[in-house]
Amino acid sequence: MNGKMSKPQDLDLESLAQTLSDLRRSVRANNPVLKAVASSTLYPALALSLGLLMGGYCLAVSMLPSLSGEGSSWILIAALLVAGGTVKLLLTNRIAGRLPNGSFMMVLRAIYTEERQEASSPARRFASWWASCSYSVRATPGSSPP
């Protein structure tokens, strides 16, 4: 009897958890801050120019080994990567600053807070399962307090 009674509740909880998960995923996919920052055309333009520059240099060194000094080419590639990363951080800061109440920290929070919430979902599932168990025990006539 108790098992039969708890099954619809489990199904309700499962469907509720599924709905919440879908809702969270759709909200995350349409996060306006992340979407506004990441959909800027500056990132693809920067990546295209950096990729052409570094790829072209690597291919040139591969075809003409005389261009490569003693490790200096790798230092140049590393310096280009660091410069590209710095420019990207500055771009992100500038784009986020244009948004209403936007800042670089807001973008970081939008990325990593959602990740932390997602990472804690097994604990939340356990908590909801535990709550459903205690609810089904309390709902049985014999176990109710006098």
Binding site: A47, L48, G51, G55, G56, C58
Partner: peptide, 20 residues
Amino acid sequence: WLWTGFIFIASFCLFGVVGL
């Protein structure tokens, strides 16, 4: 050098082209 250039062009340039 050849394969490093291949990786750069394949990932960064494709990202740039598709993004634009």
